[in-house]
Design a protein around this nucleic acid. Structure first.
Lengths: 244, 244
DNA sequence: CGGCCGTTGATTGGATCCAACATTACGCTA
DNA sequence: TAGCGTAATGTTGGATCCAATCAACGGCCG
């Protein structure tokens, strides 16, 4: 394993037993509500990829994963297919699966997608937001203030954004937004490293919610666009700084 | 099989042998460039769903499909997983796969996604379009004028739009656009039925290309937005008219 | 007569086995 | 010694078999 950021093929470094099944293994159904082994494998692999335990370029050997998860190769194969469709792994026929590399270009891509979709979702959602939904968003902002763990912070951020868009209707659009927000978690660590604790982001979050409370669609959209553009610029700067 | 549009569960009506393997079966590698049975099954099923031969609500029995394709159940299973990730089939654990229903809400969802993503892609692409790419787009417009078959017309329309966005960079964004454009094919027949032959659409296509030729980004964006909004309205009217 | 429960059939999820492909290493030849 | 062809090996793709689950049917009991 050479570099956790660039996309070179590195030696397979699957998650260790301690990482993947502290207690999940004992009661898989209860722990995560998984109904099939495929869902279980997919959920664990996805989490491991998104939080960086499986860096870009890691080769994913089916047999090795199957052994660690305590299942046969088949659920692993199906889980890998699902992850491929989510652009988290690349599969080549007869050559196996590799964790998708992250890069400055991919980050810019993700931000462009988010900018387009989230602005549209926000426009559609604000006029229909209920008081309960706005309160939920406010709760999530408060929770982010006192959350030290980067992983949970990413989840809270994701839930906040989705809460704001929840009234947009358009289930498939929201699903795409959620997917992109999840993918963004892979870059969150760099964002935090380059940007302290993101006090600015919290300011933007509050501004967006305030605008939503007042029903000022365009004001909220403007904040969101600036929010995303600044985040994109931060990531781009980070990659430039390290020659990515 | 009751209604090809609404989403009620209907009897399984898989593609017939004549539909799925006229000669593809004889030389699968050459015919479509498929490298694995899974790719083959996925491509055929996807085409059948998109062009309406497998209407929404059709139950997809693994064994039945496997028999018709001349393969075992496993490639079918993996292909269904891929299609599920593309929102073309719904899979429920232990209960099988069903072709995703189409509806007014789903159509509106798709248009909202397209409006957001394609506008963004067009903005990014126009400044970087090469003369060759613009010529390609012009060729596709001309081809659409003299294409009677609805299926091929949809493909040409897809290629035209993608040609306009090709210079946007952002591979993943373009991939999403392509996916949505493909999904749109399911609604194209209704669009044509309700709207004659779409003379208006061709007018918009030419206007977009002209604006792109002159580098007028905002003019092209305005046409695209109107183009999509009108198409969305046509589909909505169609569904309203038939009580959908 | 109606609702609940166990049983049966059909279908999918998972495991194991075999075949096909890709990569690598090796040896032969020019 | 460099290059090519071939064989060996490891990995994935596909087939078959078994287990688990769901839906439907029928019988039993209230």
């Amino acid at each position: 394993m050479l570099d956790p950021i660039n996309g070179r093929i590195v030696d397979a470094r699957p998650v260790t037993a301690a990482e993947i099944s502290p207690l999940d293994r004992l009661a898989p159904e209860l722990a995560g509500g998984w109904r099939t082994a495929t869902e279980y494998v997919e959920a664990i692999l996805k989490a491991a990829i998104l939080d960086g335990r499986l860096p870009g370029g890691t080769a994913l050997r089916q047999e090795e994963l199957a052994a660690r998860f305590g299942v046969s190769r088949m659920p692993v194969r199906e889980a890998l297919r699902q992850l491929e469709a989510q652009a988290l792994v690349d599969m080549l026929p007869h050559r196996g699966a590799v964790v998708t590399a992250i890069s400055a270009a991919d980050a810019a891509d993700g931000y462009a997608i988010r900018r387009a979709l989230e602005v549209a979702a926000l426009r559609l959602s604000i006029p229909n937001l209920t008081a309960a939904q706005r309160a939920e968003a406010a709760t999530l902002i408060a929770a982010m203030d006192s959350e030290p763990d980067a992983g949970r912070l990413g989840q809270l951020n994701r839930r906040f954004h989705l809460a704001l868009y929840a009234a947009a209707g358009h289930a498939r659009m929201l699903q795409l937004v959620e997917q992109e927000l999840s993918a963004f978690d892979r870059y969150l660590r760099f964002h935090l490293a380059a940007h302290g604790r993101g006090e600015m982001a919290q300011h933007d979050h509050r501004a967006m919610l305030d605008a939503a409370d007042r029903g000022e669609v365009e004001a909220a959209v403007a904040v969101l666009e600036r929010h995303l553009d600044q985040a994109a610029a931060t990531i781009a700067r980070f990659f430039r700084g390290r020659g990515g």
